[in-house]
């Protein structure tokens, strides 16, 4: 059951990511990104991180991507022209991507013990709420980084307001 969920939504995430690159219309690409994020949320959930899954859906697919779609709608961006692209991108891009993939999988496989691992759906069978655990850590051990991050975001919002405000 959990393996089936993983295969379906893992496949969906990969297909959505490929579709994101191949689509010519920006709005289709944005919607493919929404599909990727939703499938990632299902994967998180099947790994037992239900709070992460919910915040992924609410924050990324529900708020951020809506603004992406909004901007695309308002700018009325048309279809892109397909060009052959630069030679350098082909020469460097594909080996580069392959190298990064190999490096990451090597690191993950060799440091498996240190990173820790979980079974697919291992946490689904017994009912533990990791919301209280997350909040305990967030409000005791990680309180300072958490608050500093919120101030950072606040600064970004203020900057956006200053930039967007009309001159009096």
């Amino acid at each position: 059951m959990q393996l089936a969920l993983f295969l379906i939504f893992g496949g969906l995430a990969v297909a959505g990511a490929l579709n994101l690159l191949l689509q010519r219309h920006p709005i289709n690409s944005a919607l493919s990104l929404v599909v990727v994020m939703m499938s990632l949320a299902v994967l998180y959930w099947s790994l037992g991180a239900e709070f992460l899954a919910a915040s992924q859906v609410i924050v990324y697919s529900g708020a951020i991507m809506v603004f992406f779609v909004f901007v695309i709608m308002l700018l009325n961006a048309g279809e892109e022209e397909r060009t052959t692209g630069s030679r350098a991108a082909y020469l460097v891009g594909f080996p580069g991507a392959a190298a990064i993939f190999c490096l990451l999988s090597f690191v993950f496989l060799s440091e498996r013990k240190a990173l820790g691992y979980t079974n697919i759906g291992g946490y689904l069978n017994h009912v533990t709420s990791n919301i209280s655990e997350i909040s305990t850590i967030l409000f005791t051990k990680l309180l300072l980084p958490f608050e500093v991050t919120s101030i950072l975001i606040l600064v970004a919002i203020l900057g956006a307001v200053v930039l967007a405000r009309k001159e009096q």
């Binding site: 709070f51 609410i58 809506v66």
Partner: peptide, 19 residues
């Protein structure tokens, strides 16, 4: 155990239909 968040998440996805 996250029923309330599920409802909020589904509501925020529903925006796409209208947009």
């Amino acid at each position: 155990n996250i029923g309330l968040l599920v409802i909020l998440g589904i509501t925020s996805i529903g925006v796409y239909g209208i947009a």
